[in-house]
Design a protein around this nucleic acid. Structure first.
Length: 509
RNA sequence: GCCGCCAUCGUCUAGGGGUCUAGGACGCCGCCCUCUCACGGCGGUAACCGGGGUUCGAAUCCCCGUGGCGGUACCA
């Protein structure tokens, strides 16, 4: 074991501050190793986008460095934790493509270790039993108002008395005895950060019922899992000094901390379930691609340093760096997310999109399960045309509708313009139909050529033919190129729809 | 209240003392491409929170103020 030059094992300063040097539980320095990071959600709801972004950054860092990504479920609050919620979170992770290397481990399973750690601190004096009841504490709080901080009454209880009372069955919590001085660390995103210890009260680490409080559980687990980098939301900044104190009391090396900026709602306030769509599942359900959400989330608080914005997961892994994370909270802009999704949609192979779109089409009664297989190539072609014009998966399905079912009617505004002169419109459609009956082979180029010939023969500009035809075929004024539409629809359907349009025009409705 | 974090176009952001008359992206508005829509291309709109310093020079460094956010639990 070679010490880093300049590191004096007898000089405690060497372990303070940046805490780059890791030690095992016995305090022996260990060689620099592959990073171990973790995502530690509490299972009290679903996976929200803030958590997803935290998970993503941890995952990206692990992937990029060849490190290990551990998933830990923080279920020490047994009242609020549910298995259902855990399942939802796991689903969300899987959907995003964020696989974990270890876990999920349940924090509640570490109960014995948490207690043992508290006992160790009790034994060596870095913690003490507190016999103050909630009632007493509340009274003190009320009396001192904003000035309140635990007054260390029970720190004054002699060790033998403390042990005697505990043995006699008197309920107690375990409080950490906060030392004097200051606690600091060099945050990867915030830089040097320092808290005066006197601003921290002697916080409880073990409840009356012997279960650990968050800060103890986290530190105990992170030590146990040999976590090297704690990457989490910056709402944890003020927990960090407490946790560092715990690491030190437990004789463990302090990991590197990186605190990520919060994700805010459009009102600039913290994202809220009440006001905003925050569950990852909401986005899955509304036709957002995981790749797009991941890409978008990655750009909230981080950027690659150049102007590329649309990136695949692999590219993100390649380019990610903790150093380029910024400090300012970021507003979650759904408009940009949708744009991002459109970009990813357009780049996704249609074969990959089909499984997402087909169920919507089947669900709408436009297709049978059997059709999905039988007309696969045709459907892929359809997706090629629609995916570049859509921003969400349901939008693709919407646009596909008119290729699977005859138009339910004709857009009045478009009709007023393109079929203004009904007689002429009918005759144009007639000419087009006549020409299309003989086009051979039935493919876009030949079809377009045919339409141009028809237009020329009628002495009309191409547009004068295309627009009335588009309306007849799709019922509206916007669609993929007419050559594609006609080709995709097929001769039979095209001619049928033209006849239907002519009938509508003749009816003079 | 106390402790801490943060502060560039409406939004995401670039920017590490001069190259900033502040760059890119979303949105919006024009134009081009064109059979429409979308894509794409081109152009426009729009920002350094305020005040003091430091400096020959500050978006960049320091201080104060203001604002936003987080913590201050036998929640996580």
């Amino acid at each position: 074991m070679a010490y880093v030059s300049g590191f004096d094992p007898d000089d405690g300063r060497g372990l303070r501050g940046r805490a780059r040097m890791h030690t095992d539980r016995q305090g022996h320095p260990t060689m620099a190793q592959a990073p171990r990071v973790r995502f530690a959600p509490s299972p009290t709801g679903y996976l929200h986008v803030g958590g997803a972004r935290t998970a993503l950054f941890n995952w990206l860092y692990a992937k990029q460095t060849g490190g290990v990504f551990v998933l830990r479920i923080e279920d020490t609050d047994r009242e609020r934790s549910t298995g259902e919620s855990t399942a939802t979170i796991l689903d969300g992770m899987a959907w995003l493509g964020l696989s974990w290397d270890e876990g999920p481990v349940h924090q509640a399973d570490g109960l014995e270790r948490h207690r043992a750690d508290a006992a160790r601190m009790l034994a060596d004096g870095s913690a003490y039993r507190c016999f103050c009841t909630p009632l007493v504490l509340q009274a003190k709080r009320d009396a001192m108002k904003d000035e309140y901080r635990y007054d260390r009454t029970c720190y004054g209880v002699p060790a033998d008395e403390s042990a005697r009372r505990a043995a006699a069955g008197e309920p107690f919590t375990v409080r950490f005895r906060v030392p004097g001085g200051a606690t600091e660390w060099d945050d990867v995103v915030h830089g040097p950060t320092r808290f005066a210890n006197e601003s921290i009260e002697d916080f409880i680490v073990l409840r009356t019922d012997g279960t650990p409080i968050y800060n103890l559980a986290v530190v105990s687990d992170d030590i146990d899992m040999r976590i090297t980098h704690v990457i989490r939301g910056d709402d944890h900044i003020s927990n960090t000094p407490k946790q560092i104190l715990l690491y030190q009391a437990l004789g463990a090396g302090v990991p590197t901390f990186a605190h990520l900026p919060m994700i805010l709602g459009p009102d600039g306030r913290k994202l809220s379930k009440r006001r905003n769509a925050v569950a990852v599942g909401d986005y899955a359900g509304s036709g957002i691609l995981p790749a797009a959400l991941v890409n978008f989330l990655a750009l909230l608080g981080w950027n690659p340093g150049d102007e590329q914005e649309v990136m695949t997961l692999d590219e993100l892994v390649q380019r990610f760096s903790l150093e380029r994370i910024n400090k300012k909270g970021a507003v979650f802009d759904t408009g940009k997310l949708e744009w991002m999704n459109g970009q990813h949609l357009a780049r996704t192979p249609s074969a990959d999109l089909l499984p997402l779109v087909a169920p919507l089409l089947v669900g709408a009664g436009l297709l049978t399960e059997a059709d999905v297989d039988a007309r696969r190539d045709w459907l892929l072609w359809l997706l090629d045309l629609t995916k570049v014009r859509a921003r969400t998966v349901p939008e693709i399905a919407e646009q596909a509708r008119v290729f699977l079912a005859d138009p339910a009617g004709y857009d009045p505004e478009v009709a007023a313009k393109q079929w203004k002169d009904r007689e002429q419109a009918a005759s144009v459609l007639d000419a087009v139909a006549a020409r299309l009956r003989t086009v051979q082979p039935w493919e876009p180029a030949g079809i377009e050529a045919g339409l141009r010939e028809a237009a020329e023969a009628a002495g009309l500009g191409f547009g004068k033919v295309v627009h009335p035809l588009r309306l007849a075929l799709t019922g509206g004024g916007a669609s993929p190129g007419i050559d594609q539409v006609v080709a995709l629809l097929g001769r039979e359907v095209t001619l049928r729809r033209i006849e239907a349009a002519k009938a509508w025009l003749a009816a003079g409705a």
